Each structure stands twice: as C-alpha cells, then as structure tokens.
Simulated scan of single mutants.
Amino acid sequence: MSPFCGDMEKLEANLNMLFTKLLEFMPLPPEEVENGENSANEEPKLQFSYVECLLFGFHQLGKKLPDFLLDKVDAERLKDFKIRLQYFARGLQVYIRQLRVALQGKTGDALKTEENKIKVVALKITNNINVLIKDLFHNPPSFKSTVTLSWKPVQKTEAVAPKRPSGEEMGSGASTKKQISPQPRRDARQIYNPPSGKYSATIGNFNYEQRGGFRGGRGRGFGARGSRSRGRTY
C-alpha cells in the first residue's frame, strides 16, 4: 500500500513505527570474544522476505520525509541502524553470489524445476534489498531507486503500431478511397496468473537450511543464517 498512501496524516509517527519494526528484523552482528570468534554458537537468522517488505515500505514513506533519519532519529539510534544495515548487506552479498553460481548456465526447462524457481525468487528478493540498502547508505540517505517487488510480475511494455487512416479519412470520394489490407491481429498479452497449488505454498514458506538449501519450511518467508555461510551449498 505504501506507494499509494498519498499525503498521509501523522507521517512521522507512522514512519517511526515502521522503522522500529524494521529494526526487529535487522539483527546486530554477533559479539566477538577475545580470540576473535563469535560468542554465540549460531549467527542471527536473516529474514529476507520480511526485510524486503518492510524496507520497501520505509523507502516509499521516506520519500515524503527525506530528513527522517537525520532530524528525527537520534545519533545513537542512527549509528545502531547503520551497523545493522552493514551486517545485513554483508550477508546479502554471500547469498547473492551463491544463488548466481547455482543458477549460472540454467535456461528453459532447467529453471522450471521447483528448486530453481525458489532460487530465482530468492535472487529477486536479495537484489531488491541490496538496492534499497545502498540508497540508505548515501549521505544524506537517498530515496530515488525503484525496484520490482519479488512477488510482482515484471511489466513489459509493448510498442503499439500506429493506426492507419481509413478510406473515409483519406477522402470522401469513391475514386480517392483506397483498399487498406487489415493489419494482422497482434496476439493479446497474456494475463498474469500468480502461481497456485504446491508451488505457491513453497514460495510463501521457503527457508534456507544449513544442509538442505532453499526449500519449504514451516516458518513464513525466506530466511537464512548470517554472513558466515560461505561453505554452504545448495
């Protein structure tokens, strides 16, 4: 709804609530002990699907109040947000590289398998988040980039052939009329039908497992562990 909210009342209060919710899904990097290893056994889970939605909404509303992060957020909270963004961005780069390697060279039917469909959607999600994070890292923050959300079809523009004048438009006399051969009918654009059945459920619930790659799970949304996941395979 965020791109269509218009001149929202209490914009600052609503943007602040959205910002607070976004922070819940953008973890801080785990603390390190003296020997340089993480104090926790597992790194925080990165909920990419939720972050794509929340970050997109924050980005859309932020256009209406571009000084929010500079004037409405105190310095300590802004510093905390930048640390979270940086940590999340590092995790993104790891998974984007892994997804591209997994999909490299695959075309046609190879991309239509259940596993590869999920990877394609996962790549859209991570690329979108990456674009939005780069905007927020600008000084001052920028809100100019546009993304196509992972669950929406890409809109293709088609060139419309110019309309040919009719015989009457070319002249009212019978002698001036020309027989115009009708243009071949262009195939109607196919109406996008969202995936249904088993695949739809998988997209809504896929998670990243350490040994199982991207696959369906009980938790909602696409998630993965933190940035120390370079050795994992799909």
Rank of each mutant, 00 (worst) to 15 (best):
T146P: 01
D135L: 06
R189C: 05
D135T: 07
T148C: 08
I191L: 15
I125G: 02
K178M: 09
L132P: 06
I125A: 00
L132T: 02
S175M: 13
S166Q: 10
T157M: 15
K134W: 06
I129V: 12
N193K: 15
Q183H: 00
K144M: 10
K177A: 12
K134E: 12
K144L: 08
L123Y: 06
Q179D: 11
S145L: 04
F143N: 05
L149R: 11
A188L: 09
N127Q: 15
T126S: 04
L123I: 03
T157H: 07
K178D: 01
Y192R: 06
S142M: 07
G197W: 09
E169A: 14
P195K: 14
D135R: 12
G204S: 14
Q179G: 08
P140L: 13
Q183F: 01
T157Y: 09
S145W: 00
E158K: 15
P184F: 01
P140Q: 13
W151N: 09
N128Q: 05
P195A: 13
S181T: 10
S200M: 11
K156M: 10
D187I: 11
K124G: 00
P162Q: 04
A174W: 13
K156C: 03
A201Q: 06
K134V: 06
R189G: 12
G204W: 11
L123S: 13
T202I: 15
Q155T: 11
G173L: 11
L136D: 02
P184K: 02
A188S: 13
S150K: 02
T126Q: 05
I180Q: 01
T126F: 03
P184N: 14
I180T: 03
L132F: 06
S166I: 07
V121A: 14
G167I: 05
L132C: 04
T148F: 03
Q183P: 03
A174E: 15
G204P: 08
G197A: 09
K124M: 04
A174L: 15
K198S: 14
A201I: 09
N127D: 15
P195M: 11
A188Q: 10
Q179N: 11
P165I: 04
P141V: 13
T176E: 13
I180A: 04
H138E: 15
I203V: 15
P162W: 00
M170A: 07
S200C: 12
Q179C: 04
A122N: 10
N128P: 03
Q183K: 08
V147I: 15
S145G: 06
Q155K: 14
S145K: 04
V154Y: 01
T202W: 14
I133L: 13
K134P: 02
F137G: 06
L136T: 02
G167W: 04
R164N: 01
P195Q: 05
V120K: 09
S175F: 11
V147L: 00
K124R: 10
D135E: 15
P184M: 00
I203F: 11
L149K: 07
T148M: 02
Q183G: 00
P165W: 01
G171P: 07
K198V: 09
K124L: 03
T146I: 05
K134M: 06
G173R: 09
P162H: 03
K178A: 09
E168H: 11
K163S: 12
E158D: 06
N139T: 12
K124E: 01
N193T: 14
V154G: 00
F143R: 07
K144E: 15
K163W: 03
H138L: 08
P153K: 02
A122K: 05
V121K: 08
S166A: 07
